[in-house]
Structure formats: C-alpha cells, structure tokens
Design a protein around this nucleic acid. Structure first.
Length: 431
DNA sequence: TCTGGGGTCCTAGGACCC
DNA sequence: TCTGGGGTCCTAGGACCC
C-alpha cells in the first residue's frame, strides 16, 4: 500500500442518452430517457430529464404517469435501449482514452481509469485535453476526476459532474488535506464507491454520514461493524492506495443470459425456445473468451411484482458430463434442467441461464477416455457457427428450435437506428 | 396494461473429515 | 442432564457495482 500515482476516472455524462443525442441533434438540450429491456425502467437520463425528477431505475410507466399529471409528458423523449450503438460508441471512446496513457483500465461501458504518471503537464491540463478530444471525435461529453487513489478519483469525478465550477475536471491529488476534507464534508457517504444504501444506513447509525466521516473513522471501528472491504475504502479515502489498476480484463467467472418476456408465457414449448435462445447466446460469449463451462444453471419465474398465489420462481444447476463450449451440449443440459423445473400454471415473465465453473479450454487436461475426434468436430462446427453469425448478424444461424420472432420477444417501441454498426441504418445527411 | 441485465466479492453456515 | 475442536470445502444469499 503506497501513496499512488495520480489516477484519473473518465466517465461519460448520461452515456446512453448522450449517444442518442449525438445522432439526433434535435434531442440536444431536451429531456431524454433511455429505457431498459421491454421499455421497463429508466436506465439513463439527460441532464434535463434529471431536472424533471425522473429517477434512475424508475419504472417508465410510473414516471410517465407522474409527468402526465404535471403536464410535462411532452417534454420528455423516451427511447428503447440500442446496445449495438452504445457498445460501438464505447469502443471509440475507450480507444481515444488509451492514447492518453499506456495504463488503462476499462471499468464499465462508459468509464475508464487512466494512470496519469510522468506527464509533461499538470494532470488537470491532461484532463481538459481528454474532454476536448473525446467531444471533438465522438460528440460525447465526459467528466474527469483525478486523485491519488481510485476511490478518490471516483469521488473527484462526482464533484466535477455536480459543480460546473470545476469545468468538467476535478483534481484532488494537487489539493492539501484541508481542502480535500472541505470538499468531502458535504458528500453523503452513499456516494462513496463501494457504499450502497444498505451500508449507508448501518454507517448512519454509527454516526458516519459523510465521505469525510468515513475518511476519519478508525480502521478498527470499521472492521468491527462492517467488512474488510469498507476498511480498504476508508484507507483509499485517506489517499492510501489499496486497489490496483487492472489493465487486463480477466476472463469472466460466470456468463449469464436472461430476459423478461414481452408477453408472459405458460407452455413448456415456449420456455424451451427461450432457454435455447439464451443458452446459445451465452455459449457464444463463452467461446469468445475461449472458455468451457462445467455446469449450467436454469431459472424461470413469474412476475416478481405480483403477490398472488401463482407466484413461482425456481432454479436448478445442471452439471455437464465434461466441460464444454458446444451449444448443443449446453442446450441439452439446460433443457433437462428446465424439464425438472417446469410446472404448468404460472404465467412465466422471465427466464435465464448462467454458465458456471468456467475454465480455459486450452488448459483442460485431455480426457483419456473421450473421443477426441468428436471434440475436434465440435470445435470446427462452433467456430463456423460463430463466424456466420458475426458476418450475417446475430441469430442468422441457430439450433432448430430457437425461432427468430417468438411471441415472447421483447418490446422495444422506441429504438433508434443502429447508426454505426448497420449499413442499412446509416445516418443520412440531407443537403 | 406497463417494474432490466450482467457482473463481482464476501460471509455465514452446513457437510465432512480427522 | 451431560454430547469436542478445528480445519476445509462448498453453497446460498447478501451487498455492491454499472
């Protein structure tokens, strides 16, 4: 644990909403919200949408009703999420950020840590160049937080977003302790990275209500009442680096694919279709990291928001005979699990699968008794399947019972075109 | 009518063993 | 009536993140 080099957290402002505004300039300066799968919840809000009191994660039908009551419904544009667009824009942003430091951790779709060390200029100046470059090359606004630790960089980013006086870049690493403490004093402890609502409540009972309180809390007291994780967080708030920059993204330990349905389903046949589709998608992701799964979990449930007698949720883990990345073997196991879980009656609202016990295919000990030629044939077939789906679009080639347009498919009433990843949906400039 | 999806890590407690 | 102690492994559940 050392006093670290300055680290920056670069975070796109209202990322999904900003992506939409880049390609639909008439949305700039307007309240825009982006909705989750099935147009269910609000997952991104433009600044103007936040100002209208729309909450993150709020069910859209509730927000809409409230806004209608206030005569504000017309002021908001709601869009279905367009992940193809956001993922592509994210890749562009991350590549640009990589030019500013050889040490980069891509933390999420819209956030990246950068180590700012050995620069010929003050980090704050680099921060401003990052903002200007990303804006000019992608149209997306970002804020930059800088600190001696990742946790302080996160908090600095929060400050930069909150107070326009920072002009989008807040560097805590250059401030003395007194100035840092003055800035942390008004920040609720729940804003600190790693402290959620539950923990904030418990800390409140101990008299720890702000980021400053947590910074000053004795380690022993924290360990007594919470976890070693929180103790690390408190040290990070004091400028003692406990969290390394993770420049290599590790393989996933589990791969999940689950969806709420656009319309509830009751029949085993339809659930089988859904589970087949989800397993195929998860297997694709598994092969993309050269992995194999030794088990698969299947889950089905009725709506979590209805408390009637028919409420039903069940899951089951099915071990595989041998670790595999073959869609056919995974689907067979998932279907076996589903058959054990299924009971007629409930209106199923959601289903999913999780690939578990993952390992690298290349590191597996060969099974002396297995037919290795079957293994080779499977790999060739799966590689071909993935290649075709990459070239012609996801779902071009599927197992026989994964149908293309099932009744339970998601609702997406308001999706914008996939401007950057589909030739037939390119933006058109009218001259 | 209408309530997301995909991850990680830690901990408590049970099973099992000597 | 009284029923060890400690280690390891696994799993389920909780909390957190975006």
């Amino acid at each position: 644990m050392t006093a670290g080099m300055p680290v920056a957290l670069v975070d796109c402002n209202s990322f999904y909403a900003s992506c939409e505004q880049v390609f639909q300039p008439r949305l700039q300066g307007r309240a825009v919200v982006v909705l989750s799968n099935n147009d269910g919840c609000v997952v991104a809000r433009s600044r103007e949408a936040k100002a209208l009191g729309i909450k993150m994660g709020e069910p859209w039908f509730q927000a809409r009703h409230r806004l209608q009551g206030q005569g504000q419904a017309e002021a908001v544009t709601a869009l279905s999420s367009n992940y193809a667009l956001y993922a592509d824009m994210s890749n562009r942003v991350m590549r640009i950020l990589g030019r500013f430091s050889p040490r980069q951790e891509v933390y999420s779709i819209d956030e990246s840590f950068l180590e700012l060390d050995g620069l010929p200029e003050p980090p704050e100046v680099t921060g401003q160049r990052i903002r200007a470059t990303v804006l000019r090359w992608t149209g997306l606004p970002v804020c930059v937080g800088i600190g001696p630790t990742k946790t302080l960089a996160k908090l600095a980013n929060h400050l930069a977003k909150q107070d326009p006086a920072w002009a989008g870049v807040c560097d805590l690493a250059v401030l003395d302790a007194g100035e840092v403490e003055r800035l942390l004093a008004p920040i609720p402890v729940a804003e600190v990275w790693g402290v959620g609502q539950r923990l904030a409540q418990r800390l409140g009972a101990l008299g720890i209500e702000t980021a400053l309180d947590l910074r000053r809390a004795p380690s022993k007291r924290i360990r007594q009442h919470a976890s070693v994780m929180l103790e690390r967080t408190a040290l990070e708030l004091r400028g003692i680096a406990c969290l390394d920059l993770e420049t290599l993204s590790p393989d996933k330990q589990q791969i999940r694919c689950s969806r709420s349905f656009g319309a509830t389903v009751s029949s085993l046949a339809e659930l089988t279709e859904a589970i087949t589709t989800f397993t195929s998608r998860a297997a694709e992701k598994l092969r993309a990291q050269q992995g194999e799964a030794a088990a698969i979990a299947v889950e089905i449930r009725s709506s979590a928001f209805r408390r009637d007698a028919a409420a039903y949720a069940a899951s089951r883990v099915v071990p595989l005979a041998a670790p595999t990345a073959d869609t056919r073997a995974l689907v067979a196991a998932a279907r076996a699990g589903l058959n054990r879980l299924y009971k007629p009656g409930p209106a199923y609202a959601k289903a999913g699968v999780i690939l578990l016990d993952l390992s690298r295919a290349a590191e597996r000990q060969p099974d002396l008794f297995a037919d290795s030629s079957a293994d080779d044939r499977s790999q060739v077939l799966m590689a071909t399947l993935d290649q075709i789906n990459r070239r012609f679009g996801r779902g071009s080639l599927t197992l026989a019972n994964a149908r293309p347009a099932p009744r339970w498919r998601r609702r997406e009433q308001f999706r914008s075109p996939r401007y950057t990843t589909r030739l037939d949906e390119l933006p058109v400039a009218h001259c």
